[in-house]
Structure formats: C-alpha cells, structure tokens
C-alpha cells in the first residue's frame, strides 16, 4: 500500500532556512500539507489544535527543545502515537539514546540528504 501523501506534517526548527529546505524536500516527495513551528512550545500548541500524522523536529530550540517536545507529545494521550523524527546536528551516542528513551521514532543527523529523509518517513509511516 502506498503512503498517503495527503497527511498533515508538522516541521519544527528555530532556523527558518532549515524549515524552508525541509518543506521543499517534502514538496519534492509530494507531501504538500506541511505546517511549520519555530520552537517546541509553538509546535505543541499547533499539534493540540490540529490533526497531524507526522512530526519532524530539530533538537536545539528555545524555550522548549525538541527533546522536551517529544516528551510532551509522548505524555499526551491524544498525540502520543504520532511518529516523531528528530532531525539534528547532535550526533553523539548519548543524544540518540536519550531521544530513543523519550520515544523518538527515528533520528536523522544534519547535514542529511533527501534520500535519508524519504527513507525515514517511509519507515515511521510503516512502509519502510
């Protein structure tokens, strides 16, 4: 079964250029329903107000980091089953382990390529 390309995706990064890059790469993969947030708190508000099927988030953000956002999402009965991909420059083993323990679905290290993004999306949406 093919992936439903009409799903709502929330991308979270405090760096607007990175949001633009991810949005364009998602568009090339035919994902056109993409919303943006620039920190964890804004993302959480959008998630609670909307109907998202995938979260792609950076780690280093203030006032709420990507890890804190992940913890909030996993603690929220309505949001906890949404696949969560962390996209970050933090690439030490302890970062990956901390994210995994918090319930991350997959982890992409920056800089990344379009193929990696596609592969991880397919995997967390159950088609990998």
């Amino acid at each position: 079964m093919a992936i439903d390309k009409s799903i709502n995706i929330l991308i979270v990064d405090d760096y607007k250029t990175m949001l633009r890059i991810i949005r364009n790469l998602l568009k090339q993969l035919d994902f056109n329903n993409v919303e943006e947030a620039t920190d964890g708190a804004e993302a959480l508000a959008k998630l609670r107000a909307g109907n998202f099927s995938l979260i792609i988030s950076d780690w280093n953000m203030q006032p709420m980091s990507g890890l804190q956002l992940l913890q909030e999402v996993r603690a929220d009965a309505k949001l906890k089953s949404i696949p969560f991909i962390m996209v970050t420059a933090e690439s030490k083993a302890e970062n990956v382990v901390a994210a995994r323990q918090a319930g991350v679905s997959n982890y992409i290290v920056k800089p990344f390529n379009a193929e990696t993004l596609k592969e991880k999306i397919e995997k967390v949406l159950g088609h990998g």
Binding site: P63, Q68, A89, S91, A98
Partner: peptide, 14 residues
C-alpha cells in the same frame, strides 16, 4: 531542558 552542544567535528561523532 535538553539543549545541546551543536555539531561535533568530523570523526568526533556518529
């Protein structure tokens, strides 16, 4: 708050 150290130098991370 989970804020980290940013990108590591090549060879210093995974």
């Amino acid at each position: 708050d989970g804020l980290m150290n940013g990108p590591a130098l090549p060879g210093a991370a995974m």
